[in-house]
Computed example of a mutant assay.
Amino acid sequence: MSLPATESVPIGKPSFQHALEAARAAAGGQHYPSGALYVVATPIGNLADITLRALHVLLMVDAIACEDTRHTQHLLRAVGIQRSGSELIALHEHNEIEAAQAVIARLQEGQRVAYVSDAGTPAVSDPGARLVAAVHAAGLRAIPLPGASSVTCALSAAGITGDPGFVFTGFLPSKQGERMSAVAELAREPRAVVLLEAPHRIAALADALATLEERLVTVGRELTKQFEQIATMACAALPAWLAADPQRLRGEFALVLHPHEAGAAPSDDDRVLRLLMAELPLKTAVKLTAEITGQARNALYERALKQRDG
Score class of each variant (00 low, 15 high):
4 P>Q: 15
5 A>Y: 13
6 T>E: 15
8 S>A: 12
12 G>R: 15
18 H>W: 11
18 H>P: 02
19 A>Q: 15
25 A>Q: 13
28 G>W: 03
33 P>K: 04
37 L>Q: 04
43 P>D: 08
43 P>E: 03
44 I>T: 04
53 R>W: 00
57 V>D: 09
58 L>Y: 13
71 H>F: 11
73 Q>F: 05
77 R>W: 06
78 A>F: 09
82 Q>H: 13
85 G>H: 07
85 G>C: 01
87 E>T: 12
90 A>T: 12
93 E>K: 15
94 H>N: 08
98 E>D: 11
100 A>P: 05
100 A>Y: 10
112 R>K: 07
114 A>H: 08
119 A>L: 00
121 T>S: 11
125 S>Y: 01
127 P>E: 07
133 A>Y: 00
135 V>N: 00
141 R>T: 08
142 A>E: 05
143 I>P: 06
145 L>S: 09
150 S>Q: 02
156 S>R: 04
159 G>H: 06
160 I>P: 10
163 D>F: 04
165 G>N: 06
166 F>G: 01
174 S>P: 02
176 Q>A: 14
179 R>T: 06
183 V>K: 03
184 A>M: 08
189 E>L: 05
194 V>S: 10
194 V>R: 11
200 H>T: 13
201 R>H: 13
201 R>M: 10
202 I>D: 11
205 L>C: 06
211 T>F: 01
211 T>E: 09
215 R>E: 11
215 R>C: 10
215 R>H: 02
215 R>Q: 05
216 L>I: 06
216 L>V: 05
217 V>W: 03
226 Q>K: 13
227 F>E: 05
227 F>H: 12
228 E>R: 00
229 Q>H: 00
230 I>C: 05
230 I>S: 02
236 A>P: 05
238 L>Q: 06
240 A>K: 11
240 A>V: 06
242 L>G: 12
243 A>R: 15
248 R>W: 00
249 L>A: 15
253 F>M: 07
255 L>Y: 11
263 G>D: 15
266 P>E: 14
267 S>D: 07
270 D>C: 09
272 V>A: 08
275 L>G: 09
278 A>S: 13
279 E>K: 15
280 L>P: 10
282 L>G: 02
287 K>N: 09
290 A>I: 06
293 T>N: 00
293 T>F: 00
297 R>P: 02
300 L>Q: 06
302 E>N: 14
303 R>S: 09
305 L>C: 04
308 R>M: 10
308 R>T: 13
309 D>K: 10
